[in-house]
């Protein structure tokens, strides 16, 4: 479904991604692991049109999307869910969700998606009329994911959903992602915690220093000594 070939990204003078090639099949959950600051977020952002100066080929459903304006990429069905959440602080939960459905594609399905999202995240229903800035860390994270779903995207780029969450909430968010996947969405996930990932991932990539250093399915990942060292050691 999504294919990235030889992606090179520069932030000013610094070469952040080196010849990165990644692919994600429809319906998969693909997890990208790796140390912080090594380019994982940049990859997700490049796919979703949030990075200038990305050189390389990115195709979605066979269509070349590198260089297209962000709003068009969202309309095609890809959405980025930021680790910083990037919510609209002085608007209510409901308004945030509605804004998530800004693109034409999303607007056509706004009602159904809203119902679905409230079903997935019951806590948001109670908090509908509250300002986004008053939400706790976990709730804000849920809102960010929910808002992403409102875009009616088939392909979700989720950036560290469990960051800063207590273990119980982490479990919750991962199981929600599992549910989302079971309902037909493809997910490319960036994360740091290996144990939970085991339940979730179909395939795994590892990025170190802007390069892909490992690619394989779940079992290959779990039996890899090198990976276990890096991540379980943290």
């Amino acid at each position: 479904m999504l294919n990235v070939s030889n992606l090179n990204v520069f932030y000013g003078e610094s070469h952040v991604l080196h010849d990165v090639s990644v692919s994600v099949g429809q319906g998969e959950v693909v997890v990208m692991l790796g140390p912080n600051g090594h380019g994982k977020s940049t990859l997700l952002k490049s796919i979703c049109g949030l990075v200038d100066n990305a050189k390389g080929v990115i195709t979605y459903k066979g269509k070349e999307i590198n260089g297209i304006a962000t709003e068009n990429i969202v309309n095609l069905g890809l959405i980025y869910i930021a680790e910083n959440r990037e919510l609209f602080p002085h608007m209510t939960v409901l308004e945030n969700l509605k804004l998530g459905a800004y693109s034409k594609n999303a607007r056509d399905h706004e009602k159904e998606n809203l119902a679905w999202v409230f079903d997935l995240f019951p806590r948001l229903v109670e908090r509908q009329k509250q300002f986004a800035s008053t939400m706790s860390g976990g709730e804000a994270r849920m809102l960010a994911v929910a808002r992403g779903l409102m875009s009616n995207a088939d392909f979700l780029c989720i950036d560290e959903p469990s960051l800063g969450l207590q273990p119980s909430l982490r479990h919750e968010i991962f199981s929600t992602i599992r549910q989302i996947n079971e309902q037909g969405k493809t997910v490319l996930l960036v994360e740091q915690n290996i144990p939970q990932i085991a339940e979730l991932a179909d395939r795994v990539y590892v990025m170190e220093e802007g390069r892909i250093s490992f690619e394989g399915d779940k079992d290959e990942a779990l039996s890899n000594e090198h990976l276990r060292e890096i991540f379980l050691g943290m």
Partner: peptide
């Protein structure tokens, strides 16, 4: 940034 993410031009 959030605006860009949700596809606001």
């Amino acid at each position: 940034i959030g605006a860009k993410i949700v596809g606001i031009p």
